[in-house]
Simulated assay, not measured.
Amino acid sequence: MNAFISGFSLGISLILAIGAQNAFVLKQGIKKEHVFVICFVCALSDAILIFAGVSGFGYLVEQFPSLQTFARYGGFAFLCVYGLKSFYSAWRMSHELKPEGITPPTLLKTILLTLAFTWLNPHVYLDTVILLGSVSTKFGESAPLFGFGAMSASFVFFFSLGYGARLLAPLFKKPLAWKILDGLIGIVMLSLAWMLLAF
C-alpha cells in the first residue's frame, strides 16, 4: 500500500504543473467538446509511458538519447505553431461558448491533437519513463504497485481537470475571458517551446 501511495503522490506532483497538455484539457473542458475522450487519451498515454518506465524502458531511452532529441524538436515546432494559433485566436476570433455556424473539431482531429500534446512533449518522457521508472526500482517487488499508483494519479487528475473546467463555463460566456485565456495559453506554449531548446 505504501508503494501505491508513493506512486500516486509522485505522479500527482509531476503532473500538476501547468503545461501545454493541461492548458489544452482545460480549454476543451470549458468548451465541453469531447471531454471524456480527451481525458481518457491523456490518462491512457500516461499509463502506457509509466508502464514502460516501470518495466525498464527508461534504460532504453537513456541508451538512445536521439529519441529525446527527436521529441524535443518535434515538440518545439508543434508548440510554436499552436502558440501562434492561440495568439491569433485571441486577436481575431469572436470567442463565444457556442458560436453559431462554427462546427466543433471532429473526434478524430481532437484525438490526434491530444496525442500530439502528449507524445511530442519530451518532458513527459523524463517524468513518466525515466523519473518514475527509476524511482520504482526502489520498491523492488512492489514496483508494479508503485506504477499503478502513478497511473491512477493521471486518471484522477485529467478527469478532474476536464470535467471540473465546466464550472468555469459561466465566466467564459464573456468573449474577453476567452481572449485572455487564449493569450495566456499562447504565452505558455511559446515559453515551453523556448525551454525545450534552451535547456
Results as ranks from 00 to 15, higher is better:
W119P: 07
F117M: 11
F139E: 02
I102P: 00
F76H: 08
S94A: 11
L67D: 02
F139S: 03
S94V: 11
G133W: 05
L126G: 07
L84F: 15
A77W: 00
G75L: 07
T106F: 12
A150V: 11
K98H: 14
T118I: 12
T106H: 09
T69G: 10
P105E: 09
A116R: 06
F146N: 00
L113G: 08
W91G: 00
L120S: 05
A150Y: 03
L107I: 13
F139R: 04
A150D: 03
P99Q: 12
V124W: 01
H123G: 06
V124C: 07
L115E: 13
I102V: 15
V135L: 10
W119S: 09
S136G: 09
R92Y: 13
Y88V: 09
F76D: 00
Q68R: 14
V135R: 14
P104W: 01
N121W: 01
S89F: 00
K138Q: 15
F139N: 10
N121T: 04
L84M: 14
G101I: 05
L107V: 13
T103K: 14
F78N: 02
R72C: 12
K109G: 13
A143S: 14
D127L: 08
L112Q: 10
S134I: 07
W119V: 12
I130Q: 06
F78T: 04
T106Y: 10
G140K: 13
F117W: 05
P144T: 12
E100F: 05
I102Y: 08
S134F: 11
H123F: 08
S89D: 11
L115D: 07
V129M: 03
G75C: 03
H123R: 05
R72M: 13
A71G: 01
L126M: 15
L126E: 01
E100C: 02
K98T: 03
G149I: 01
T118F: 10
V124F: 11
A143F: 05
A71Y: 00
I111F: 11
P104R: 06
F148T: 13
T114H: 07
L112E: 01
L84V: 14
L131M: 14
L67R: 03
Q68H: 10
D127Y: 07
L108Y: 08
L112R: 06
L97F: 01
D127H: 04
A90F: 10
L131H: 02
A90E: 02
K109S: 14
G75W: 06
N121G: 05
F70H: 04
S66F: 15
G83D: 01
N121D: 02
F78L: 02
L97M: 11
G133L: 05
A143W: 02
K138P: 00
T106N: 08
V135T: 12
G74A: 04
L131Q: 09
R72G: 01
A90L: 04
N121I: 06
H95F: 11
S134E: 12
K138A: 15
F70D: 01
K109Q: 14
D127M: 03
L108S: 12
E96V: 00
L132E: 05
S66C: 08
K109Y: 13
